[in-house]
Design a binder for these strands. Structure first.
Length: 460
RNA sequence: GGUGGGUUGGCCGAGAGGCGAGGCAACGGACUGCAAAUCCGUCUACACGGGUUCAAAUCCCGUACCCACCUCCA
């Protein structure tokens, strides 16, 4: 079976046929770095990381571009509220995002371009659009430049909407727009309310980029006028992706062949909006769960399915994942084997991670049943590698590894004496004494279990 | 008004005309001095009302409820 994926534009699962054999160009809309990343934000990071890994597994030479939007209205508003420069806020949140990705073993993309670093490319594209008659400088002297949606007959094709069916933007300032649905390519500098540092020179006066233009410009720069896959969250379909496609194609660039959109994580049935507070920020969640457990929770759901976040569900997922880890520990295998065909089929079917995870557990069970778990453990490792969930991956060590080791050997020394005593009691069939010692250790939060190779302890 | 998605067992979460996904929890059994871990088994679900079909969670029609997007949200 070849790799198939659901294309939002055609609303069907299609065979993946790259523009160039053996190569895959992937552009994903990253985040606007304006607040601490929460669980919902990193979902797309994890989802597209799995895509990237799978494409690589399939042998593609992948160029993966994931941008960062480091200038926009919200960044300006928030930084003003916090009394610090916008670039300070954006950079701080960018670093926070990097930490979150690292904690979840989201591999860095090939390149992570930032909007502010690509103003010349945007200006070039905007000028081209004006030349072609698809954009115009606002006549009200605001310095804005708008895309003329009426000039582009296939506007709305990505989201299958007709211009006249769209709700006129009541909240947006119509300013110098010819049609209320025209969107900003360039935003003139508002001297009275915006810092000069948030403006760049352009043929239309100082200003800053509109939201959508950056992605068209950067995708074009790093992936060329046509590339394979464009991804992002469902909310970006409209207007962001619709506009990206319109302005790119209006400039004569074919743009993306496939569109992939990941679904939301909701809390209490509601969109996990940035205004809901910070209880589910990555640093907060990682106080209670390991990164690998959170990643497993995110990978176990299909990328196009809503996930209703709950601590109970995350807890259950973590328990389930530990089952896999325990199996690997017991097997003591470190060499990855081959992927089971059922796993490959699941992944090829639009990244069917839920079915893939089911295969994972099937193999764990078979391995637990078998006399020799080695071949099964090898398969499990191979599957975990593809999903970015291999516990042995150094990415999970974080900065705590060394201290954990020291702690472990200290506890080991303390527990060893007690276990020794317990062994003597057991030899003498003094079960009461043996159980008392085990209880005593458990009081300290350490679980003792007897295995064929002797007792083992683990932190509860 | 337009566009898209959803409603599955105690819980989470797949599937998309016939064959019990998987996980968590619970219960029973095996193993164990007792446990733990592991294995085996049990719990046979698809919002509601119609319809099509030999056969519907899956297709069609209708209803209810939920969510998202409609010009700077992952």
């Amino acid at each position: 079976m070849t790799f198939r994926l659901y294309d939002t534009a055609t609303r069907e699962v299609r065979d993946f046929v790259p523009l160039q054999e053996g190569r895959a160009g992937l552009y994903v809309c990253g985040l606007t770095v304006q607040s601490e990343p929460h669980v919902g934000h990193v979902r797309s990071g994890v989802n597209f990381d799995v895509l990237q890994r799978w494409l690589r597994h399939l042998g593609y030479d992948v160029t993966f571009i994931r941008n960062v939007t480091d200038i926009d209205d919200k960044i300006l508003t928030k930084s003003a509220e916090q009394g610090r420069p916008w670039f300070n806020l954006a950079y701080a949140m960018h670093r926070e995002l990097d930490r979150a990705y690292a904690a979840l073993n989201v591999a860095p993309p090939t390149y992570e371009p930032a909007a502010t670093g690509h103003v010349p490319e945007m200006v070039e594209l905007i000028a081209d659009l004006i030349d072609r008659g698809h954009a115009y400088a606002a006549e009200d002297g605001s310095g804005d430049v708008y895309f003329d949606v009426r000039s582009w007959s296939s506007y709305g094709e990505l989201t299958h909407q007709g211009i006249d069916d769209m709700e006129p933007a009541t909240d947006a300032d119509p300013r110098g727009k010819r049609d209320p649905r025209d969107f900003a390519l360039w935003k003139g500098w508002k001297q009275e309310s915006e810092p000069e540092t948030a403006s760049w020179p352009s043929p239309w006066g100082r200003g800053r980029p509109g939201w959508h233009i950056e992605c068209s410009a950067m995708a074009g720069k790093y992936l060329g006028p046509a590339f394979d896959i464009h991804g992002g969250g469902v909310d970006l379909r409209f207007p962001h992706h619709e506009n990206e496609q319109a302005q790119s194609r209006a400039a004569g660039r074919p743009f993306a062949s496939y569109w992939m959109h990941n679904a939301w994580i909701t809390t209490a049935g509601e969109k996990m909006s940035k205004s809901l507070g910070n209880s589910l920020t990555i640093p907060n969640v990682l106080e209670d769960y390991r990164g690998i457990e959170l990643r497993y929770y995110l990978v176990a759901a299909h990328y196009r399915s809503h996930v209703e976040f709950s601590h109970q569900a995350l807890e259950e997922a973590a328990v389930g994942f530990r089952r896999i880890e325990l199996f690997l520990e017991r097997a003591g295998v470190t060499e990855a084997g081959d992927l089971p065909q059922a796993f490959v089929d699941a992944m090829n079917d639009d990244l069917g991670t839920p079915a893939a995870v089911a295969v994972l557990f099937d193999v764990v069970r078979e391995g637990n049943r078998a006399d020799d778990a080695t071949p099964y453990a090898g398969q499990v490792l191979a599957m975990l590698d593809v999903l970015g969930l291999n516990p042995a991956d150094p990415a999970w060590a974080g900065g705590r590894g060394q201290q954990d080791d020291k702690l472990k050997s200290a506890v080991d020394a303390l527990v060893a004496g007690l276990l020794d005593e317990r062994a003597k009691a057991r030899d003498a069939k003094d079960w009461a004494r043996a159980d008392a010692i085990r209880d005593q250790i458990k009081q300290a939060g350490i679980e003792v279990e007897d295995t064929p190779t002797g007792p083992k302890w683990s932190i509860d």
